[in-house]
Structures are given as structure tokens and as C-alpha cells.
Simulated scan of single mutants.
Amino acid sequence: MALVHLSAADADGPTELHRGDTVELRLPESPTTGYRWRWRLPVTLRMLADEHVDAAMTGLDAPGSAGERRLAFDVTAAGLHELRAELARPWEGEAREALTFVLHAL
């Protein structure tokens, strides 16, 4: 079992994992604009955490600045899994940005 880190740069390409691995995905987010990441996880990925990490908390920037959305999940089954992330405002139907992560768990 390993901890695997993913970012927006890992979207659209396959990422090889092992069943039992924990994955941490971090994407830039500025909730003061109303835009937040929402997830479409298959049942084979078990969510552990979904939180906003303020840049000020990491000591990198001033309070109120943009930060990151942190999603952590376990891979519970072998096979191909597709995780979709959409950056959208809850009151709007269309996503401003969408990313797809293809996970190949052995």
C-alpha cells in the first residue's frame, strides 16, 4: 500500500495504482469566487477526505487567498476506474472546467 499524489497534470492519462493504495488529489480552488470542485467517484474508490486547504494555512500566502481542494481516497478494487472532477458554481448547471482521471489498479 502506497500514498500516491495526483494533480491536474495527471488528468487524461492513465495512472497505475495498486488495490489498497491511498490517493491524494490536489486541485487549485478559490471558493470566494463560488467555484468549487465536485467529484464523480465510482463505488470502487472510497472517499477519505474532501476539504479546502487555504494557502494561508500552509504559510504560503495571505488569508483569503486561493488554496487547494484536497480529495483523498482508497482504491478498493482492481481494474480501470474513472474519476471526474468538475469546477463549478453550485447554482450554475455548466462546469467551468472538467478533468478526468483514469486509474488502473492492479
Rank of each mutant, 00 (worst) to 15 (best):
30 S>D: 11
52 H>Y: 15
24 E>H: 12
8 A>V: 07
29 E>R: 13
103 L>P: 03
23 V>M: 01
52 H>L: 10
33 T>D: 06
60 L>Q: 13
100 T>S: 10
42 P>M: 03
92 E>L: 14
79 G>N: 05
87 L>T: 02
34 G>F: 12
33 T>E: 07
10 D>M: 08
96 R>D: 02
37 W>N: 08
11 A>C: 07
94 E>W: 04
8 A>W: 08
44 T>L: 01
90 P>N: 12
41 L>I: 01
19 R>T: 09
91 W>C: 10
89 R>W: 02
6 L>Q: 11
99 L>T: 00
41 L>Y: 03
27 L>V: 03
60 L>F: 13
16 E>Q: 14
18 H>P: 00
106 L>A: 13
13 G>K: 15
89 R>T: 05
78 A>F: 02
37 W>I: 10
105 A>G: 10
93 G>V: 07
57 M>E: 12
63 P>G: 11
104 H>C: 09
76 T>K: 07
101 F>A: 02
70 R>M: 07
93 G>Y: 03
23 V>N: 03
44 T>G: 04
48 L>C: 13
80 L>D: 12
40 R>H: 11
18 H>A: 14
67 G>H: 10
59 G>A: 11
69 R>P: 00
25 L>A: 05
73 F>A: 06
70 R>P: 00
33 T>L: 07
71 L>K: 11
46 R>Y: 08
9 A>K: 09
15 T>F: 04
29 E>L: 05
7 S>Q: 09
76 T>C: 03
42 P>Q: 11
101 F>H: 04
48 L>N: 15
21 D>M: 05
17 L>F: 06
58 T>V: 15
43 V>Y: 06
40 R>E: 14
89 R>H: 14
22 T>W: 06
51 E>P: 00
62 A>G: 05
72 A>V: 14
84 R>I: 13
16 E>H: 12
